[in-house]
Amino acid sequence: MERLRAASWEGVISIDELTAQGVPERTAYRRTQEDGPWQLMAPATFLLSSGEPTYRQWEIAALVYAGEGAMLTGLGGARHHGIRSGDDPTTVHVLIHDPRRVLSTPKIVIERTKRLPKPIKRGGLAVAPVVRCLTDWSRRQKDLTAISAVLAEAVREWKTTPADLLQELDHGCRKGSAAPRRVLAAVDEGVWSAAEYELREFWHQWADLPEIEWNVKLYDEDGRFLAIADGFVKDLGFVLQVDSVEHHFATPDQVQETLTYHRRLRAAGLQVLSVRPAQRRDDPDGLHTDVLDALATAALLPAPRVRYEPASA
């Protein structure tokens, strides 16, 4: 058994390797039957134990099953590039070269492509470049908020740019590209999170709301940094801020930090409105009224004593 484990890849092994190690094919499959010591992870791909496979073992099984030239992509692949947002994947998404014919399984998604990129080694596994991982994943998604969380993180953390993602969408399959294109339009405007994306969508629903910029750096008259405004209407000195502790009990320190933040901006002549994401979902009409009231108040105030620039500058 030790010899088989040494020949395996972290416990994963192909039928070809098993037979090369002297295990008859019939014996290998018999050991995967009920109460057997092994299990079949994919056609001709075995795990030399009966315990629950780890996600990494599923990734290895997918690469072994898909064969030469295969590489991880999608959100699972993006995890290897440090992307943390989004629900953890329950399947493994793999790229193979188009002429090959390998079928998907319930746990392994096989995608054939004529544009097979050069893989990058991550933890000993072949992984597609981050741009390809993200676009391969986002083309298969319909939830714009979920897409925005992942793509905004990738851009915010300087792992890629909206231009690079759009270029990949242009060169790849057009099917499913409408949703990520819509999200990237928001990310390109400075949206950094799913909550900000939802707020931007809300803002654009109302024709009577003025032009707004996202994630703007604010400074006082002497050039001292004040804050980054989630949303900023520069003509009125109006700041729209997303309440980031909506789903948690705010600690005393968080409450004090929020009060200090608002006091600092108001001292500079800015009107501030905090918005909970639930307001957009549960009471959009009420939120619209609150925004209009805050904008009207901002219009009555003297010109704010601030300088500003895009947060990406």
Rank of each mutant, 00 (worst) to 15 (best):
G86F: 02
A62C: 04
R84C: 14
D88N: 12
G51I: 13
I108K: 11
V12A: 08
H97E: 15
G74Y: 04
A44D: 07
V64G: 02
T113V: 10
R100W: 12
L63C: 05
D87F: 07
V109Q: 13
S50N: 11
L95N: 11
L103H: 14
P43N: 12
R30S: 13
A66F: 07
S14T: 15
V102Y: 07
L48Y: 05
T113A: 10
A61C: 06
G36M: 10
E52F: 04
G77A: 12
E111N: 14
R84W: 11
I96N: 03
S85P: 03
A78M: 05
P89D: 09
Y55S: 12
M71N: 04
T27W: 00
W58N: 00
V102E: 09
R100P: 05
A28D: 05
E17H: 00
L75R: 03
K114R: 15
A28Y: 01
M41P: 00
V94D: 09
L18D: 08
T73I: 10
P24I: 08
Q57A: 05
R31Y: 11
D98W: 11
V109Y: 06
Q39M: 12
L75T: 02
K107H: 15
G74Q: 09
T45E: 09
V92R: 07
A66H: 03
P106H: 13
L72H: 11
E34L: 12
G11Y: 08
R115A: 15
I15M: 06
R100I: 10
S49I: 04
Y29A: 05
H93P: 09
K114H: 15
T27R: 01
V92E: 08
R100V: 14
P106K: 13
I108L: 10
H93N: 12
M41N: 02
H93K: 07
R26S: 07
T105K: 11
A78Q: 04
P89N: 06
K114I: 15
G86V: 10
R26W: 02
T45G: 02
M41C: 02
R79K: 12
L116R: 15
I108D: 03
R30I: 01
L103P: 00
S14H: 05
R100F: 13
G82R: 00
P106D: 13
S85M: 14
P24D: 09
A78P: 07
I13S: 01
